[in-house]
């Protein structure tokens, strides 16, 4: 295993652009997205559906379905560029260095094989071990993700597990080869709160104990608040705001993040009406010029309608909003 040089992010994404050619022109679904994740760090990625969260994750693991394609930017894992690798080489990196967990555990598990067989096969593909060693490791992994009686349950089929347990099995599968980076796309969205809490605790523990970097995609701000170190807020294919989780949640800067935080009902906060962002996120073929949020933004001014704001540095993070240009702090 290669050890990371000190102070180097494990994952660097720089100017990532994902396009879909269509008969009516090219749709840009991810547009100049840049961020990094350090070893042992959890980066949360939030935003409305269609904001480009999943495609960003898919681009990193090299799983953009054609005709979609990475049309620009670069992805660097532990100092090595990976967005331009041939398919076979990328396949080895996936699984070995990058583990993926998706929303629906059933899509990641083959219903015809026992979970043990699937774990052992994956371990043998990526690590140089005997089948017996692989089975022992599979049992350890299942125990680690909190499946009791793992020695017995390893020989069960996916349908014999509940939704929450299946998601743990998928996490075990993603961890088989001790990956450096875990991409988890809505891993708890289909689960009940009680199980969600268990999965979150598990992801945090793995991050801490294995020093893995985690990109956690979700639209649940509560999950982000509990899990992430930093958070990126996406809107219409771009990052609107990125920063330490406390800053973004307690003191959001971008007008979209401010609206988003106000729209979340909170236990103990008595309001007659929730803050509401009127309208909807634009479709990819109708992204307005200038700032993509300007038709819904209560603070929009002339510049917003003509010029697109790039990410601007603020205290500990970045925000793509003209209110913060030239060191201004959110005032016009």
């Amino acid at each position: 295993m290669t050890s990371p040089r000190a102070n180097r992010p494990l994952l660097e994404v720089d100017g990532l652009r994902v396009e879909f050619p269509t008969r009516r022109g090219t749709l840009v679904a991810v547009d100049g997205v840049s961020f990094h994740i350090d070893p042992g760090e959890v980066l949360g990625v939030v935003g409305e559906s269609g904001a480009g969260k999943s495609l960003t994750g898919a681009a990193i693991i090299g799983l953009i379905e054609p005709p979609g394609r990475i049309a620009g930017g670069r992805v660097t894992l532990d100092g090595r560029r990976i967005d331009d690798l041939p398919y076979e080489e990328m396949r080895r990196i996936r699984g070995r260095q990058i583990g993926a967990v998706f929303q629906d555990p059933l899509t990641s598990l083959n219903p015809l094989y026992t979970i043990g067989r699937q774990l052992v096969e994956t371990i043998c593909t990526h690590l140089d071990v005997t089948p017996q060693q692989a089975r022992a490791r599979a049992i350890t992994l299942l125990q680690e993700v909190g499946i009791t009686a793992a020695e017995r349950r390893i020989d069960h089929y996916p349908h014999q597990f509940s939704g929450g347990m299946r998601q743990r099995v998928v996490i075990a599968l993603a961890l088989c080869a001790n990956p450096r980076l875990i991409i988890a796309d809505e891993p708890t969205t289909a689960l009940d709160v009680s199980i969600q809490a268990q999965i979150i605790a598990l992801l945090k523990k793995l991050c801490r104990e294995h020093g893995a970097a985690v990109m956690l995609v979700t639209h649940d701000m509560g999950v982000i608040a509990e899990t992430a170190d930093r958070v990126a807020v996406m809107y219409a294919g771009r990052i609107a705001e990125i920063g330490p989780v406390r800053d973004v949640i307690k003191r959001p800067k971008h007008p979209y993040t401010i609206g988003l935080m106000g729209s979340i009902p909170t236990i103990g906060r008595n309001v007659e009406r929730l803050t509401q962002i009127d309208g909807a996120m634009p479709r990819l073929d109708a992204i307005p010029p200038g700032c993509a949020f300007n038709p819904r933004c209560p603070k929009a001014f002339d510049r917003c309608r003509g010029e697109r704001p790039e990410a601007m540095a603020i205290e500990h993070g970045q925000v793509a909003c003209w209110l913060y240009a030239n060191g201004r702090m959110g005032e016009r």
């Binding site: 509940s162 929450g164 347990m165 009940d192 709160v193 009680s194 199980i195 969600q196 809490a197 268990q198 979150i200 605790a201 649940d220 701000m221 509560g222 999950v223 608040a225 509990e226 899990t227 989780v245 406390r246 949640i249 307690k250 979340i264 909170t266 236990i267």
Partner: peptide, 24 residues
């Protein structure tokens, strides 16, 4: 009590959560 305790804490009060045991 268990359900309420399982809700992710948006307030980030750092309250220690009681781990939820088992499933339905």
């Amino acid at each position: 009590r268990m359900l309420l305790d399982a809700i992710p804490d948006l307030e980030m009060s750092g309250r220690a959560r009681i781990p939820v045991a088992g499933e339905v």
